[in-house]
Design a protein around this nucleic acid. Structure first.
Length: 461
DNA sequence: AGCACA
């Protein structure tokens, strides 16, 4: 009847800790928001300069009652809420939390917006992005999308420093479009056949392996050196960062990786990769020998058998990883004996998919199929989210946290990049930059929502 | 003057 829609609208607002403020002065600051709202309660988050005119804002109180008190106060006050003399209209937001870069666990500038030129959606898989960007630190989430600007991705790190390091190293550079090993493993890895890595009866030979390899095994199959379950990898032309996680990703395609150690010898980076058995090691060795992790001849692997059979390494450092450390006995499906990396038909776990997922990506053959073979339906098609982990310091190198915190093992056992990876700016070759394949997509990385972080946030105490 | 990332 005479009831206006506006009237109804106003009274159908359900209370929320988050308040929506409008008619703010142009580019209102956080301080002004806080000055206005603070008398009513503790402010845990703000988002200002919202809307086309940048004159709206959100304020989130710690407690619902605090938000209610503010709305109630100005609903009955003769003096309207004001900022710089302008009347500010306050309502409950229709959301219950502010999702911006300041929410707990996030910091300004920890998310990069990456524009990858010269590709279409699907040409670059999330796995490749994950692999490349994990070299700089723990990647929490990835989202890809196609906009007018082209193929873009959001990559969320733990902190702004990590994001900045990745940006500095990668901005304007080419993503290693063809991660050679991923291509190769797609065609040769037993993953394609849903292999059971706990099965000791793995075949050693791969007919798919062609002459590109530099076999250490003669055509008659005669061994030239004693076999071992531990491989020694020498990495030539390491223009891109090779971290424990990168190695783990690559070598896990052939079986459970038990331990990894990275070290320097004669100025060259080497790594030891331990498998549970000789057969798996032989499979990986044959498949990977002479191949490059990145296209363009970067990070070429040369593999021999190590004299070691059981590495003694720190369970969690920037140069080593022990994936066999018994942990999380509470997780029933996780049987360390059976290979914690591959729980098989275990419940849907995002991390589990990583090993198999990347194998479905084949840029060389332009199949660009984003399907994730190993665990259909368990992986959002265009997002990546790291498993829950506690907040980590960026330098967890010598931290014993891996042994004590079951969550850490969850992450490692699922093959997801682990936190605590040191920043590595070596991704950018110094001096003469290597020529990049013409088809390689260029990346433009920029910080998201953190370009101009608030100078001070004392009110978020 | 009326609800947000790409």
């Amino acid at each position: 009847m005479s009831t206006s829609t506006q009237h109804q609208f106003r009274y159908t607002q359900t209370p929320s800790k988050v308040l929506h403020l409008r008619n703010l002065p142009w580019e209102c600051t956080d301080d002004e928001l806080v000055e206005l709202c603070r008398p009513f309660g503790k402010i845990v988050n703000t988002k200002c300069n919202v809307g086309a005119n940048r004159n709206q804002a959100f304020v989130e109180f710690a407690d619902l009652n605090q938000a209610i008190s503010m709305v109630s106060y100005y609903a009955s006050s003769s003096e309207p809420a004001q900022v710089r003399g302008k009347t500010v209209y306050i309502q409950y937001s229709n959301r219950h939390e502010i999702v911006n870069n300041k929410s707990p666990g996030d910091v300004p500038g920890n998310v990069l917006l990456v524009t990858i030129e010269g590709v279409e959606a699907g040409d670059v898989s999330i796995d490749v992005i994950h692999l490349v960007f994990s070299a700089f630190g723990f990647v929490h989430k990835i989202a890809t999308f196609e906009k007018t600007a082209g193929f873009q991705a959001l990559i969320q790190y733990t902190d702004a420093d990590t994001a900045a390091a990745a940006r500095n190293a990668l901005d304007g550079r080419s993503i290693p479009r063809q991660v050679a090993l991923l291509n190769f493993m797609l065609s040769s890895s037993p993953h394609n056949q849903e292999w059971d890595y706990t099965n000791p009866m793995l075949p050693v030979n791969h007919t798919a392996i062609d002459g590109a390899l530099q076999p250490v095994v003669g055509p008659d199959g005669k061994k030239i050196e004693p076999e071992s379950n531990v491989l020694l990898a020498s990495i030539e032309n390491m223009q891109y960062a090779v971290t424990v996680d990168v190695l783990h990703t690559v070598f896990s395609a052939f079986g459970t990786v038990q331990k990894i150690a990275i070290f320097e010898k004669n100025g060259q980076t080497q790594a030891l990769i331990q498998y549970p058995d000789v057969t798996t090691a032989a499979t990986a060795k044959e498949a990977l020998e002479g191949h490059c992790i990145y296209d363009g001849g970067y990070c070429k692997l040369h593999l021999t058998y190590s004299r070691h059979t059981d590495l003694n390494v720190k369970a969690f450092s920037d140069k080593s990883r022990d994936y066999t450390v018994p942990q999380v006995p509470a997780v029933p499906w996780q049987n360390p004996q059976a290979g914690p990396m591959y729980p098989g038909t275990a419940p849907a776990l995002q991390g589990q998919v990583l090993g198999g997922q990347m194998l479905s990506w084949d840029p060389a053959q332009q199949t660009a199929t984003p399907s994730y073979v190993s665990a259909p339906g368990t992986y959002p098609s265009h997002t990546y989210a790291a498993p829950p982990t506690p907040a980590y310091p960026t330098a967890a190198a010598s931290s014993p946290i891996a042994q004590s915190n079951p969550l850490v093992h969850n992450a490692s056992s699922m093959g997801i990049t682990q936190p605590g990876i040191p920043l590595n700016v070596n991704l950018q070759p110094g001096g003469a930059s290597p020529s990049v394949p013409a088809s390689s997509p260029l990346m433009q990385a920029s910080p998201i929502a953190g370009a101009s972080p608030p100078a001070h946030q004392p009110y978020f105490s």
